[in-house]
Measured scan of single mutants.
Amino acid sequence: LLPSFEIGAWTEDDVYCWVQQLVRKGDSSAEMSVYASLFKENNITGKRLLLLEEEDLKDMGIVSKGHIIHFKSAIEKLTHDYIN
């Protein structure tokens, strides 16, 4: 489970856990499981996660359009939940 809904306070480890949970919950393929490490390697914290754009995801090595859409949708939901 994630430490809190205060996404802005999430550490790199918290984001890593979130990506792992996202991959487990989704209908995503096994190749998506490597993405948790990509987020950690790129020092993505909660604040940075909320700022990620499609180009950032591509720069991190996420090239599948479907996977990018999956992440963007999940990040938008997080942003919405965080604001409300």
Rank of each mutant, 00 (worst) to 15 (best):
L1I: 15
L2Y: 14
L2D: 15
P3M: 11
P3F: 11
P3I: 03
P3Y: 08
S4T: 11
S4I: 05
S4D: 13
F5C: 14
F5D: 15
F5V: 14
F5E: 15
E6M: 07
I7G: 01
I7P: 08
I7F: 02
A9T: 12
A9H: 14
A9K: 14
W10K: 00
W10S: 04
T11E: 12
D13G: 02
D13S: 03
D13F: 02
D13V: 02
D14H: 06
V15L: 03
V15Y: 00
V15W: 03
Y16H: 07
Y16C: 10
C17W: 10
C17G: 08
C17Q: 12
W18N: 00
W18D: 04
W18S: 02
Q20A: 06
Q20T: 10
Q20R: 10
L22R: 01
L22C: 08
V23K: 14
R24S: 13
R24I: 14
R24E: 10
R24M: 09
K25Q: 12
K25W: 07
G26M: 11
D27I: 14
S28D: 13
S28L: 14
S28H: 09
S28I: 15
S28N: 14
A30S: 12
A30P: 11
A30Q: 15
E31C: 09
E31G: 07
E31H: 09
E31V: 07
E31M: 03
E31A: 05
M32Y: 12
M32I: 10
S33W: 08
S33R: 07
S33Q: 11
S33F: 06
Y35E: 00
Y35I: 09
Y35M: 01
S37E: 12
S37L: 04
L38C: 14
L38N: 13
F39M: 05
F39V: 02
K40P: 03
K40W: 04
E41C: 05
E41M: 05
E41D: 08
E41S: 10
N43A: 08
I44F: 01
I44T: 03
I44K: 00
I44Q: 04
T45G: 03
G46Q: 09
G46D: 00
R48P: 03
R48W: 09
R48C: 03
R48S: 05
L50S: 12
L51W: 02
L51C: 13
L51F: 06
L52D: 04
L52E: 03
E54G: 03
E55M: 06
E55G: 09
E55D: 08
D56N: 06
D56L: 05
L57R: 02
L57D: 01
K58H: 15
D59H: 09
D59E: 14
M60S: 01
M60Y: 04
M60N: 02
M60I: 12
I62R: 01
I62C: 03
V63D: 08
S64H: 15
K65V: 10
K65E: 14
K65H: 11
K65T: 11
K65R: 11
G66H: 13
H67T: 08
H67K: 05
I68V: 09
I68R: 13
I69R: 14
I69A: 14
I69C: 10
H70G: 13
H70S: 08
F71C: 03
K72L: 13
S73Y: 06
A74E: 11
A74G: 05
A74T: 03
A74V: 04
I75S: 02
I75K: 06
E76T: 08
E76N: 11
E76L: 03
E76W: 07
L78I: 01
L78E: 00
L78A: 03
T79A: 13
T79E: 12
T79P: 04
H80L: 10
Y82I: 07
I83R: 15
I83F: 12
N84M: 06
